[in-house]
């Protein structure tokens, strides 16, 4: 995965999300539930599964979260659009990358992704979408960490 996402400007993504993070997370009224289950799910992903989990979580955010989230504030709308279109770009980059190399999905990777969808389905759609948006910083940090070796000096 390291080279696949080399052209993604993670810094801009994280900076724009920081701008709406407080507002989005403040709307999350279920702090006892997580969607991405920080420690248990993402941290335990093995390097070989990183490509598959990244692809799956990009789909999760694009197919479910960004569509389910109803946003009225223009600044938040712009930021979410920026993230959504960047994820679309990452998905394309991963697909092109897959042509040259495998993106295997082990049982563990599939289970990890299913847990995310299960967590999501535990909540009402608006709450689940808001909570998932509020956890974008976790996902972005995980992506940056898994392809950080490619950033220049």
């Amino acid at each position: 995965l390291r080279r696949c996402l080399a052209f993604v400007d993670m810094r801009h993504l994280e900076e724009s999300f920081q701008g709406i993070k407080r507002a989005i997370q403040a709307k999350d009224t279920f702090p006892n539930i997580t969607i991405l289950s920080t420690a248990e799910t993402l941290r335990s992903i093995k390097p070989v599964d990183v490509c598959c989990v990244t692809k799956s979580l990009l789909e999760f955010y694009m197919d479910r979260v960004f569509k389910d989230h109803q946003e009225l504030k223009p600044q938040a709308l712009r930021t979410i659009s920026s993230v959504a279109n960047s994820f679309l770009y990452m998905q394309k980059a991963l697909q092109q990358c897959q042509v040259q190399r495998r993106c295997p999905c082990s049982e563990e990777a599939t289970n990890a992704t299913r847990m995310v969808y299960d967590n999501y389905d535990q909540l009402e759609v608006p709450s689940a979408a808001t909570k998932s948006l509020g956890e974008l910083d976790v996902f972005l940090a995980w992506i940056a960490k898994n392809h950080q070796k490619t950033s220049p000096a």
């Binding site: 223009p74 279109n85 679309l88």
Partner: peptide, 14 residues
């Protein structure tokens, strides 16, 4: 963006 045109085509952003 392309995302909106693919997934939420009725949405235009100011």
């Amino acid at each position: 963006g392309e995302y909106e045109s693919l997934y939420t085509s009725d949405i235009w952003i100011p």
